[in-house]
């Protein structure tokens, strides 16, 4: 049993699949995330795959300062990512709402709505910093998988069918 658990832990660490969620970003961080997958940085060496559906993903990468419109979408998508999951906040916007602070169209920062595991600061952060953040999140993910899902830290989110 122990060997099987260790194997699963290794597999989770070596195969983080990402879902990219834009919550009103200026596109700067989005481009850097794509650059991390490009030939120069090649995130696939870490087993990273950018997935189209949140159901396939392990790590949710959020960019942007979380606009009021995006809140329900973020919660729905967070609910659709299956346990075990981790959240990486890319850029300064989801961490602090950055230069958009005090804007009446924002409901940020991200941590008010869903639990965040790794913050990657920068405006925008460099692709290698994003990769480091994803690698760290993958380690957190592997440890988290050993425990059953904690209902206290998981906000109640309804599953959207469509």
């Amino acid at each position: 049993m122990k060997i099987w658990q260790r194997l699963i832990c290794t597999c989770r660490r070596r195969s983080p699949w990402l879902f990219h969620m834009n919550s009103g970003s200026c596109n700067g961080c989005d481009i850097e995330l794509v650059a991390a997958l490009s030939p120069r940085f090649d995130a696939e060496q870490l087993g990273v795959r950018l997935e189209g559906s949140p159901r396939h993903a392990d790590i949710m990468c959020v960019t942007g300062p979380v606009t009021r419109n995006a809140v329900s979408a973020i919660k729905t998508v967070y609910g659709q990512v299956c346990h075990p999951k981790a959240v990486v906040a890319i850029g300064s916007c989801p961490a602090t709402t950055n230069v958009f602070i005090d804007s009446r169209t924002l409901a940020g920062p991200l941590e008010k709505h869903i639990p965040v595991d790794v913050f990657v600061p920068g405006c925008p952060p460099r692709p290698d910093a994003i990769l480091q953040g994803v690698a760290k999140a993958a380690e957190i993910l592997a440890e988290r998988g050993m425990k059953p899902p904690d209902s206290a830290t998981t906000p109640a989110v309804e599953e959207a069918q469509r």
Partner: peptide, 24 residues
């Protein structure tokens, strides 16, 4: 690019097997 390590499809398979299916 350099691409995925040799064991990658195996890692993906085991990881997916150990994941929880959401209620639908």
């Amino acid at each position: 690019r350099i691409g995925p390590p040799f064991m990658q499809p195996f890692f993906d398979f085991v990881k997916l097997l150990a994941k929880r299916t959401p209620p639908r």
